[in-house]
Amino acid sequence: MTQELNLTLQVWRQEGASDPGHFETYAANGISEDMSFLEMLDIINEDLIENDQIPIEFDHDCREGICGTCSLMINGQAHGQEKATTTCQLHMRKFNDGDTIVVEPFRARAFPVVKDLVVDRSSFDRIIESGGYISVNTGAASDANLTPVPKEAADTSFDAAACIGCGACVAACPNSAAQLFTSAKLAHLNLIPQGQSQRFERTETMVDTMETFFGSCTNHGECHEACPKEISLDFIAFMNRDYVKAKMKNRKLAGQS
């Protein structure tokens, strides 16, 4: 038999962007400790629907920690207190019977609340559109290992590419800065040969776009702690260096390594 938990939830309810919003208290009784946090919310929503009330809106998709759709500030921490874990992968066994849990949306001015716990993170899409790609001829796949990539560089690029774009970094940041996300997206392409030709152009446009939405980094490191993919602060340093390099560089020499 698995343990059952009785919990009190304080959930942020907000009709839409123009509603000021408020906390609502719900009892979550008989929650199995094997459930995920989202499954627990599903149970509450079923109750609400049965009682002709409006269910709590929250974002989710893959529920296996890879898509970046789920969010939630749980007790003041993005994706909850568990390190390197998305909300969909957070198990109820991490909580104690009788706990009160506060559930809020990710907050930043660039993440306006759509409804309840759902926020619009499309400002991230604006950043990606402005340079988060490489320009290559598509068609037949080229031979594997055609372009040599140093092992360390490939590994680091892959670590950066692990970012799922969830926005926890922005939510956790007291400055509402998006440095961790943007720098991960930049490093993923800028660290390997395939990304070189557009490296400085990309850095400039993605950072410039980021800065039209988000605050300024003060190197607290909260983003890294909140990140479900443990993206490293090193990428922020790489971005800071490349951005000023991009401003200084004679682009006529951009083809030289």
Partner: peptide
Amino acid sequence: RSRKASDKADFVGGEKKYGS
């Protein structure tokens, strides 16, 4: 800039705050 990027996201007013 950081203050502008954080306010209005906030229901308490002033600096970015969470209920918990």
